[in-house]
Structure formats: C-alpha cells, structure tokens
C-alpha cells in the first residue's frame, strides 16, 4: 500500500481543529501555549459552542490568542481578564466565557481580580498557564518562580529571604467557596494532554451549567525563558515543577 492510498480524507485520525486557523503562531518552538490552544479549540468544537464562546485574552505571551482561534475574543487590560469575563457572562449568560491567562497576568498584577471573580462564583472558566517565569518580557522572575530557579532578575536563583515563596494560586482558589472545580494539569506528553482536555471540558460544562467558577491551571514550559530545548524543558518541568505544583484535582464539587 502506497502512502497515497493512506492519505485520504476518510482515513484521517487526527488533524488540527477547524477552529484553529492557519496563522503561524508567534510562540517559540515547542511552547506549551500551542497545545493548550488546540485543546481549547477541540473542546469548544466538541461542545458545539463555536458561535457562543467568548474568550478573554490577557497581557503576556497569549495576548495574540485572538489571532489563532476563530471564536469571539475580548482583549482585557493587564490582569483584568476575570473582571471583563464577569461582565460578559453576566450580560450574556448563554455564552461560554473563559479567560486565558499566564502567571504574570493572573498570579501577579491580576491576583485581586482573579481571586474575587473565583470567590464570587462567577460562571466563568479561568485557564491559567503557569510556566514559572515572565515569558513575553524576556524571562524575569514571576511570583510562581521556584525557589532557587535562575531568571534574568534573580541570576543567583530565587531566594526566599529576599523574594518570598512561590505563589500557589490554585491551592488558594481551592479554598474559596465560589469555586466549583479547581484542577492542575500539564501538557508534556500524550497522557497528560488527554487529562488536560478532559479537565477543560469539565470546567467549560460547569460554566454553562451555572455551577460556579472553575480554574484549570496548566503547568507549562517556557523553553526560551528557561534557556533549554523544548524536550529538556519538559523533563525539567517533570523533575522540578511537579514537586511544588503537584498535578490533579484540588477541588471538585460536581459529581461524576
């Protein structure tokens, strides 16, 4: 059997989701953002919510998310995505509203907005990309940077006495009464990607069923910021990040 016999539309087992357009992404090679974009697109397609979804993009690497997924988007001021999403969801309750934020946007400048939106139990989903560094601005220390991790602004490693402890936003969110579903996932291999997709689906369904707010943290790599190859960054994440940011559901108030 020749390759031409196999490559036919009826034999497709996997292709890029239709919601993801052909614009070349500005992300660095091997960046986790692309995988999460794909998962979001796949889940929206499977839920048949293409025309009813509004994404709120942050400031950070994902600022151009609206260039890649063909759904409605709103760009928010730095850190204010949950506040914008609150307004959109309250005015249009039949829309699927989610924010897509990095650790600089959500865990630093937007901590107040995020915590309060989650605590109010707004029926939105927050997708939180945690790569422990400020990727877009060139690899500076973030609130989530691990102790001892070297970045442009802590070249000798993060020092607890000087910089404090890394902030675990997801644990914080799990303690709030308004949250329905709080989970931490990763996208470093096929199995993890499958679990992350299920988590995003569950969070989106909770939002549409009016169950409260959901937070899906994706522990991610920033191979450019970490100054590693994408492959090595995945390994480094498994060895170092998962010890401080363990994967799994932290809170699940929905049965099934």
């Amino acid at each position: 059997m020749t390759k031409e016999d196999i490559i036919k539309p009826e034999n497709v087992v996997y292709k890029k989701p239709a919601l993801m357009n052909d614009n070349p992404m500005h992300y660095c090679p091997g960046c986790s953002h692309g995988v999460v974009h794909k998962l979001v697109a796949e889940v929206i397609e499977e839920m048949e919510m293409t025309d009813k979804t509004v994404g709120v993009s942050p400031v950070g690497c994902a600022v151009f998310a609206y260039n890649y997924l063909d759904i409605d988007w709103q760009e928010a001021a730095h850190g204010r995505a949950p506040a914008v999403a609150t307004a959109i969801k309250r005015l249009m309750p039949d829309k699927l509203v989610f924010t897509y934020q990095g650790d600089g946007d959500l865990a630093c400048i937007g901590t107040a907005e995020s915590i309060h939106a989650l605590n109010r139990g707004e029926h939105i989903t927050i997708i939180f990309i945690n790569n422990a560094i400020y990727g877009m601005t060139g690899g500076q220390m973030a609130p989530t940077t691990l102790v001892g991790m070297k970045t442009a602004t802590c070249p000798y490693g993060r020092d607890v006495d000087l910089h404090g402890h890394p902030l675990r936003i997801t644990e914080l969110a799990a303690g709030l009464n308004g949250t329905a579903y709080v989970t931490r996932q990763s996208v470093h291999n096929v199995a993890a990607i499958g679990k992350a997709k299920k988590a995003i689906r569950k969070a989106f369904e909770n939002s549409m069923n009016g169950k409260g707010s959901s937070l899906v943290e994706i522990v991610s790599t920033c191979n450019s910021g970490w100054k590693m190859s994408p492959e090595k960054a995945n390994k480094w994440m498994e060895e170092n990040m998962f010890a401080y940011y363990p994967l799994g559901d932290l809170k699940d108030t929905i049965e099934g």
Binding site: D5, I7, N11, V13, K15, K16, M25, Y27, V190, I193
Partner: peptide, 26 residues
C-alpha cells in the same frame, strides 16, 4: 516509510498543529 501505525502521538503533542495523521486497516 511503512513503520507508522497512525497512533497520532506526534500530532497530539505538536504545539503548532502542523501534523495530520491518517490510518487504514489492511
């Protein structure tokens, strides 16, 4: 050529969605 089983692992991990995978039973 001929070694691929169409498991789609490559396409699933591709951050840029560049890979399309086909599979047939022979």
């Amino acid at each position: 050529a001929d070694r691929c089983t169409g498991c789609a692992s490559c396409a699933i991990v591709c951050p840029d969605g560049c890979i399309t995978v086909y599979k047939v039973k022979v």
